[in-house]
């Protein structure tokens, strides 16, 4: 565990809590892609199955449980509790275009052809593209509430901090996880355009992000 890894986990937790509280307090999921949240719940489900097979540390177990509970709770809020405010018309990204290639790739490229490893690899590749429906929805509606942009900022920052963690671990302990690093780079690159808009418009400008 190093500072980048810890900061990354905290940033990830902050992002998930920001989104959950935004929906819960505003009693609305307008502008939020339910599809992305379902994909994130799927990422955590397929990645954290080792909760039942190995105990790594209290921190590891607790964080995995918190991520699982909050992601499913968020999906529940969107599709059940506040489904009246769910903007399904603008949440129109075809997730099968993500799931099929990611599943295929997980069977081709993995560390071991075992169910747990393939599911773990699937979760790594899926996480890299899981935000696409949300970013697509923002381009379709042409704007995003500032809370949503803060959510996206911390979500994008978390994997960027994981990249720093992997650089650190490579130089200090020779650790290199090719699948996670390559996927993490792709994932972070998808946020670059958003990061630019976030800094130029939300932090400096009007607090609301409206796309050109």
């Amino acid at each position: 565990m190093n500072i980048f890894r810890l900061a990354g986990d905290v940033s990830h937790l902050v992002a998930i809590i920001i989104l959950f509280l935004k929906i819960w307090k505003s009693k609305s999921c307008a502008g939020i892609s339910g599809k992305s949240q379902v994909l994130f719940a799927l990422v955590f489900t397929s990645r954290y199955l080792d909760l039942f097979t190995v105990f790594i540390s209290a921190y590891n177990t607790i964080m995995k449980l918190v991520f699982l509970v909050l992601s499913y709770a968020t999906v529940y809020l969107i599709y059940m509790r506040f489904r009246g405010s769910y903007d399904s018309e603008n949440d129109s990204f075809r997730v099968e275009f993500l799931l099929v290639p990611v599943t295929g790739l997980a069977f081709l490229e993995n560390y071991a052809f075992t169910p747990l490893e393939i599911l773990w690899t699937f979760s790594i590749f899926l996480e890299a593209v899981a935000i696409m429906p949300q970013l697509f929805m923002i381009t379709k509606t042409g704007e995003a509430e500032s809370i949503t942009t803060h959510y996206l900022f911390f979500l994008g920052l978390y994997r960027a901090l994981y990249l720093a963690n992997w650089v650190w671990r490579y130089h200090t302990e020779g650790f290199f996880d090719q699948i996670a690093v390559v996927s993490g780079v792709v994932q972070t690159i998808f946020y670059c355009d958003f990061f630019y808009l976030y800094v130029t418009r939300v932090l400096r400008g009007s607090g609301k992000m409206s796309l050109p």
């Binding site: 890894r5 986990d9 790594i56 560390y111 773990w120 090719q178 996670a180």
Partner: peptide
């Protein structure tokens, strides 16, 4: 061979 994945990471 490839490293076994470090499941410690989230």
């Amino acid at each position: 061979d490839k490293p076994t994945v470090d499941k410690d990471e989230l």
